[in-house]
Structure formats: structure tokens, C-alpha cells
């Protein structure tokens, strides 16, 4: 069998992602609008498969959503541990059941941090929206510079700064607690305070790394779709972490 087929000569690093409707021979306008009638797969419909203009973006978004879903389970597990541990005491030598949970007072600065994080979600959403402005996308396609990047960058920088401010705020909160001699090891409640805020901070740290990657991507990538994907994915992740923080904060502030 193989002998009868003559292999084509193919340039090895030619980029063509057929499934992404990118055959390497020029791009179509990167917009959601169907130009219609073209016959080149424009008016494709779902039943014929997942090939289409926005396919890569949709795929990335779905990946991010699944990742967030599994991350959510991670926090669900930790929060359940929190509730179980909170209600667990022990039987002391006099055969009495004692529960010596002493709530950790939430440092005031966390309220401020929460606000910062909320605002950062807004700026992130602004950044995301800039990526999909029909008008600018057309401009880019026509070769009129990178207006989208230009418009997005400020919002992205704002988000990064706010994110860093949040992390700095968390750091301050830990320092304040430490000053009151509440450490990770101190008691049951403090374990959770540090664990939850810490694990969340790690997530945000990762988030900032992603934002910085998006920032670099905005400069480096020529392809609009790639830029849209990184900013879009980063922003969903960021929103999820913001929302998660509200829950975690509420838990620490009101459910102890």
C-alpha cells in the first residue's frame, strides 16, 4: 500500500490549521459578523462540525472553564475541611467534649483588598472588551496598525497593578496577624486563614503571571486571534479568582 502513494512535498513549518479555518493562504476578517454568501465555509452550521472563525477562541475558553471547574472542586474540598474541622473538638481527660476553635479576626485591610480585586475585575473586563471591538479588528485586518493592542494595554496594566496591590495587601494582612502572634501554626482557625488566603494568593500570583504573558503576547503576536485568546482566557481566569475570593472572604469574615 504505501509504495503506491507518493508523498507530497510539504513545507514543514508552514502554518496551517485547517480545523481553525486557517489554511495559511490569507485570513478572513476576524470578526463575528458573517459576511455571508462567500461559500468559503462562512455560513457553516453547527451540525457540520466545529470549524469556524471563532473556533480557536471558543476552544480555549472551554479549556479555561474546565480548568476553573476543577479548581473549584479543589477549593470545595478545602472549604469542606474548614467546616468539618471547625466543628471538630476532642474529648478531654474529664470526658467532656471540648471545641476550642478560636476564630481568627480578619484584618481590616482585607476589606480594602476585596475592593481592589473587584475593581481589577472591572478593568480586566474592559481589557477583554477592547479585544473584540469590531471596528478596530477591521482596521487591523486592513493593516492599519494594532489599534486593539493599543487600546487594551492600559487596562491590562491597570489590572496587573491592582492585582499586585491585592497581593501586597494580603502580605500586609499576614504581617499584621503575625504582629499579633497569629501564625500559620497557631491554632485551628489560623491554619485555615493562612491556608485559604495563601492558596488563593498562589492562584492570583499565577494569574498575574498569565496577565504578564498576555501583556507580552499583545506586543509580540501579530495574529489578532492569538491575542484575543490570551486576553480572553486570562480575563476569565481572573474573574473566577475574583469571584472565588468573595466567597472565601465571606467565609473567613462571617462563617468563623
Amino acid at each position: 500500500m504505501p509504495a503506491t502513494v507518493t508523498p507530497n512535498r510539504v513545507e514543514p513549518d508552514r502554518r496551517h490549521h485547517l480545523e481553525d479555518h486557517d489554511n495559511g493562504s490569507g485570513r478572513r476578517p476576524p470578526t463575528d459578523k458573517r459576511t455571508g454568501g462567500g461559500g468559503d465555509n462562512d455560513n457553516w452550521d453547527r451540525s457540520r462540525g466545529n470549524y469556524g472563525p471563532r473556533e480557536r477562541l471558543r476552544r480555549a475558553r472551554m479549556g479555561v472553564f474546565f480548568a476553573i471547574a476543577s479548581d473549584l472542586m479543589f477549593f470545595v474540598a478545602i472549604v469542606s475541611t474548614f467546616f468539618v474541622n471547625q466543628s471538630t473538638g476532642h474529648i478531654n481527660v474529664y470526658n467532656q467534649y471540648v471545641n476550642d476553635w478560636t476564630p481568627t479576626a480578619v484584618p481590616r485591610i482585607l476589606w480594602f483588598n476585596t475592593l481592589v480585586l473587584l475593581i481589577s475585575s472591572l478593568t480586566m473586563e474592559m481589557a477583554r472588551r477592547q479585544m473584540f471591538r469590531e471596528h478596530d479588528a477591521m482596521d487591523e485586518w486592513l493593516g492599519l496598525g494594532k489599534p486593539i493592542t493599543r487600546r487594551t494595554i492600559p487596562w491590562l496594566i491597570a489590572t496587573i497593578i491592582l492585582g499586585l496591590a491585592f497581593l501586597a495587601g494580603q502580605w500586609t494582612a499576614w504581617r499584621q496577624l503575625a504582629a499579633q502572634h497569629v501564625f500559620f501554626r497557631t491554632n485551628q482557625s489560623s491554619h485555615f486563614f493562612y491556608l485559604i488566603t495563601g492558596v488563593h494568593a498562589v492562584h492570583l500570583f499565577l494569574g498575574i503571571a498569565i496577565l504578564i504573558a498576555a501583556f507580552t503576547g499583545l506586543y509580540l503576536s501579530r495574529q489578532l486571534e492569538t491575542r484575543q485568546i490570551i486576553v480572553d482566557s486570562a480575563s476569565w481566569y481572573w474573574h473566577a479568582m475574583g469571584l472565588l475570593w468573595i466567597f472565601l472572604f465571606a467565609l473567613l469574615a462571617f462563617c468563623q
Partner: peptide, 10 residues
Amino acid sequence: NPFFPLPASD
């Protein structure tokens, strides 16, 4: 078939 040519264009 690994020898099957991958189409070069759409």
C-alpha cells in the same frame, strides 16, 4: 496511513 499526503491547501 502515515504516507497519506496532508493537503497543502484548502
